[in-house]
Amino acid sequence: MALASFGAASVLLPVVALFVRAPWSRLGGALSGVGASTALRLSIEVSLAATAISVVVGVPLAWVLARGEFPGRNLLRAVVVLPIVLPPVVGGVGLLVALGRSGVVGRWLHDALGLQLTFTTAGAVVATTFVSMPLVVLATEAGLRGLDRRHERAAAAMGGSPWYVFRRVTLPMVAPQLAAGAVLTWARALGEFGATITFAGNLAGRTQTMPLAIYQARQVDPGGAIVLSLILVLVSVSVLVALGGRLTGPR
């Protein structure tokens, strides 16, 4: 009980401090002054796009990790999990070397297709996806591993093709874990900073998400930074509360 109180307090204290120190008197000015709405909208767009891509790409990846039998599967899992372990800046540097205009793949994208990801919103989405996707992959893989395979076998015996079985039995049965993973992915994407600023840069309206705006606001307007931080806290908490109860509560 004491430890739990300590744990809760350690999370609560910085949040409470933000409230205490917020420049309430010039809240409105601080809000408009630091481009809060632009950054918030971009943050939500980027985090939702990253979550969507993570689910679309991550679920097949989780399936391969949970069901595939091939040499190097554990290595693949380690690589997939790597972005969780690495400092996000390292991810950003890696993406720059891979997908930057002069990068290993980026060079080809740029020369052949005229595509440049760096300094674009798409680049911010790529960086954010890179960092946050492992969460949905791991959650879904755990769900798939915990699944009672008899149901899938029964579905196959009932005439379901592998894709039909996946769509109507496997996927709905791992839906709770998938949804929990997607929420974690989204939360991680909303807070993503290091990989985005390193790979995609920092430009208001294009790549400057809330964390980047907060960081830059510190230079010119520390009060504005606190206001932006509070907005991010409020948005995150309200979404997590709204979804969290549904995910972990009685179903």
Binding site: F119, I197, G201, N202, L203, T207, Q216
Partner: peptide, 10 residues
């Protein structure tokens, strides 16, 4: 301008 970096090294 495509990016406003934190510091000169970036």
């Amino acid at each position: 301008v495509v990016s406003n970096e934190d510091d000169d090294a970036s």
